[in-house]
């Protein structure tokens, strides 16, 4: 027996949250590449990982399947694509706002990167102006380039002394 879906597939898929940064939906994070319905009614969702080894990918797949089943879509296929590679520029404006509200400094927008030629090595860590998401002070320092998840770095505010996470630009 076929019943009408409770929620259209795109809306359901867009509402799934990131397992490691649950203040963001997969749409906010920019990892949702497509939601299509195949000829036989199967919902095909395409996602892309943030980092090659992102351990959250399996959870995202499971969550998408659960959410879509709950929304009345019986046949769901989650596909992964790597190209074009995700970058932090894919995080939406709404996503950046939600990160800041949750105390996580959003990444800068890098814009298009020049193609070709060796990737330059900078021996001095680029001093990005990352404002403290808690007190707003501009004077913050990086304590570790690598944080609790693949996509975050650790920083500390020199003004309010609070540590915070920063979604690092890639």
């Amino acid at each position: 027996m076929v019943t009408a879906p409770l929620l259209d597939a795109r809306t359901a898929a867009e509402g799934v949250v990131d397992p490691e940064m649950p203040m963001l939906t997969l749409a906010d994070l920019g990892v949702l590449r497509g939601v299509d319905t195949a000829g036989d009614g199967t919902v095909v969702v395409t996602i892309t990982p943030t980092y090659s080894g992102c351990p959250a990918l399996d959870e995202m797949r499971a969550d998408l399947r659960r959410k879509l089943h709950a929304a009345g879509h019986e046949r769901v296929e989650v596909r992964t694509t790597f190209s074009p590679p995700w970058s932090t520029d894919w995080i939406s404006d709404a996503g950046r706002r939600k990160l800041a509200e949750a105390g996580v400094a959003p990444p800068d927008r890098l814009g298009p990167r020049p193609a070709g030629g060796p990737v330059p090595l900078t021996l001095v860590a680029p001093s990005r102006a990352v404002a403290c998401p808690r007190c707003g002070a501009p004077d913050t320092e990086e304590t570790s380039r690598f944080g609790p998840t693949a996509c975050t770095a650790l920083r500390r505010c020199r003004s309010c002394a609070e540590p915070f996470e920063h979604v690092k630009e890639i």
Binding site: P49, S83, L121, A125, R145, I170
Partner: peptide, 27 residues
């Protein structure tokens, strides 16, 4: 090869961070 090209596209960004990390500790 589309897979090698796709892996490389992601790997370049990741390895840039790895090399920066090692270079800064080397200093």
């Amino acid at each position: 090869d589309p897979v090698i090209a796709a892996v490389a596209g992601k790997a370049v960004k990741e390895l840039t961070y790895h090399r920066d990390y090692a270079a800064q500790w080397t200093l």
